[in-house]
């Protein structure tokens, strides 16, 4: 009976190495920050969505160009799960030495703590906001051969029959927009939740649903191929990437719907560090090479500095809280 002993000895040996490895890493995180120039080591960036996803690709692209202005490299760490909640929570609780920052996705980031205040372990106050990078307006989209040609058509048609409306599911920013639009226009859609934009776009193009509400940047390729029609976008002004598409407001729907991607640090990071990073990101977003790349990738850029971003999100948050108290969804 010698072999089983070998087996367990080896197992124990390796397990102990693994455990030792883990503990060392934990110590590494507590290392006091260097007194010298910031940053003197790579900055970790928590992305709350999968590697290769929209937020991840946007983050890696801007960070790639930002390294030049920051003078240090970035290490992206993907912590996906629970629609970003896991990543946002871990960003809020990260050490505040300026070497851990992360991507936030308002309004999704804001909606989690509003909807489930007892379970979600962070809120907007737990972040030091650095900068907004992308503002992706919402959009109402129909198939290219649809009879519906404008938002007005859409609401008129909705009064005649129940239109199948594809959206991202309950609790998303699209759900919120739909609910408000239904109230304002006194219509009711047959709302069909989809997991992710791709299957919803496929269903729209295949004629399985009548209309889709999503983010404009996610349907750019199909829009350029004229496979779909974008009825209106949710930004304040027309989008550069879709210059002939009117806004919700121009079409008589008094709403805005914007998905943002920005960068934040955990609360407690020094003001100098926040300003340094915001400044570097601002320079990056004025970098011609980066702008060219972003246009190719259809990223609707929209820089906001720390103060502006904070004010914007606080107002946005108040609005959402009010809406939720008035009529929880």
């Amino acid at each position: 009976m010698k072999k089983p002993n070998y087996f367990f000895l080896m197992l124990m040996f390796i397990v102990s190495i693994v455990i030792a490895g883990c503990s060392e890493e934990a110590e590494g995180q507590d290392k006091p920050e260097g007194k010298g120039k910031y940053p003197d080591k790579p900055i970790e960036v928590i992305v709350a969505f999968n590697a290769g996803g929209g937020t991840d690709v946007a983050a890696r692209t801007i960070l790639n160009y930002a390294e030049k202005y920051v003078g240090s490299s970035f290490a992206v760490i993907n912590k996906p799960g629970a629609a970003g909640e896991i990543g946002f929570t871990s960003l809020a609780g990260a050490p505040d030495n300026g070497y851990t920052i992360g991507m936030i996705n308002p309004p999704t980031t804001l909606l989690h703590p509003i909807q489930r205040p007892n379970e979600v372990k962070y809120n907007l106050d737990d972040f030091s906001l650095i900068a907004n990078i992308v503002s992706d307006p919402g959009a109402f989209v129909v198939n290219a051969d649809s009879q519906i040609n404008s938002l007005e058509d859409l609401f008129e048609e909705a009064k005649k029959r129940k239109l199948n409306m594809a959206y991202g599911g309950p609790g998303t920013s699209e759900a919120l927009t739909l609910r408000r639009a239904e109230e304002m226009k006194d219509v009711e859609f047959n709302k069909i939740p989809f997991e992710g934009t791709s299957p919803a776009v496929a269903a729209l193009m295949g004629g399985h649903v009548d209309v889709l509400i999503t983010n404009a940047s996610e349907v750019i390729s199909q829009y350029e191929d004229k496979k779909i029609k974008v009825l209106a976008v949710g930004s304040e002004e027309k989008m550069d990437l879709m210059p002939d598409v009117p806004t919700y407001k121009e079409e008589g729907l008094d709403l805005t719907q914007i998905s943002m991607r920005g960068i934040a640090a955990p609360k407690g990071v020094s003001k100098e560090q926040v300003e340094f990073l915001a400044d570097a990101l601002k320079k990056t977003m004025e970098d011609e090479e980066f702008i060219k790349k972003a246009t190719e990738m259809a990223l609707p850029l929209d820089y906001m500095g720390p103060e502006e971003y904070k004010e914007f999100l606080e107002n946005y948050n108040d609005e959402l809280v009010e809406e939720f108290e008035r009529n929880p969804w």
């Binding site: 290769g52 690709v57 299957p199 193009m205 390729s221 990738m297």
Partner: peptide
């Protein structure tokens, strides 16, 4: 069509986009 058939091709989409 820009519609990924499975999880890997969804990630592959990111690779396409990064090259414009």
């Amino acid at each position: 069509l820009g519609i990924p058939g499975n999880a890997v091709s969804a990630i592959f989409l990111g690779g396409l986009l990064i090259h414009g």
